[in-house]
Each structure stands twice: as C-alpha cells, then as structure tokens.
Amino acid sequence: MPFWIELIVSLFLLVGGVFVLLGSVGLARLPDFYTRLHAPTKATTLGVGCLLIGSMVLSTWSSGSLSIYEVLITIFLLITAPVSAHMLAKSGLHHRLEHAKQTGHPELIEEPLHKE
C-alpha cells in the first residue's frame, strides 16, 4: 500500500476516533441535559462520518473500484441524528428537566408552546 493512502486513512481514522471520544466526554461532563444533548448529536456523528470516509478510501484502494457503500451509513446518521436529538429535547422539556443555573432565557420554556 502506498504511503500516502495509509497516511490519509490513518488521519481520517484518528480524527474520527478523537471526535467520537470528545462526544462521549462531553456527554459525561457537561452540566445539564440540554447541554449534554449537543455533544453526541454533533461530535459523534462527525466522528463516525470520518471513520467511514477512512474506510471508504481504504476499500476503494484495495478493491480497485470506487466504494460508495459506506456513504449510506453516513447519510443515514446525518438524517437520523437531528431527529433523535429533537425528540430527546422535546421529552426533556416535557419532563421539565433541570437546566444549568447560568442558562439564559429560562422563561422561554416556562410558557409552553403548546396549548393543550
């Protein structure tokens, strides 16, 4: 395997691994539910995307033809991550979870958007 392909793949894998780890670190140490929601939806999605790009480059080289199969998983994650984040945020609001003390505009969640 030529060195530059190995370099590109390694770079993508490392960046992906770092983002996956950062997402989980954020999930473990951010102060409240709403801030914790940010870490996995963004960092983890990009991390897995980077891992998939690395794998795509590798399998394109080893099979000799363009491998776009991995793109399916990336697209799927990009479509589903915001939807599940939105659902989680909604259920968090519904359960009136505590927000961090420094949160701005807490009055916005006091007056509900839905008149039931």
Binding site: F33, L37, T44, V48, S55, L58, I73, S91, L97
Partner: peptide
C-alpha cells in the same frame, strides 16, 4: 439522572458501537 438522560446515553452508545463494528470491519477487511 432521569430517563431522558439515560436514553441519550443509550443512543450515543448505539452510535459508538456501530463505530466499533466499522473499525472491526476495517481490521478484518
């Protein structure tokens, strides 16, 4: 604490385990 937090952790765990399987796929080609 609370169910929404645990659901969020579980959701992240799902994505991370699929990342682990992708890595294993690269390892085993």
């Amino acid at each position: 604490p609370g169910v929404p937090d645990r659901t969020l952790a579980l959701d992240t765990m799902y994505i991370n385990s699929s990342a682990l399987i992708i890595l294993y796929g690269i390892w085993q080609s």
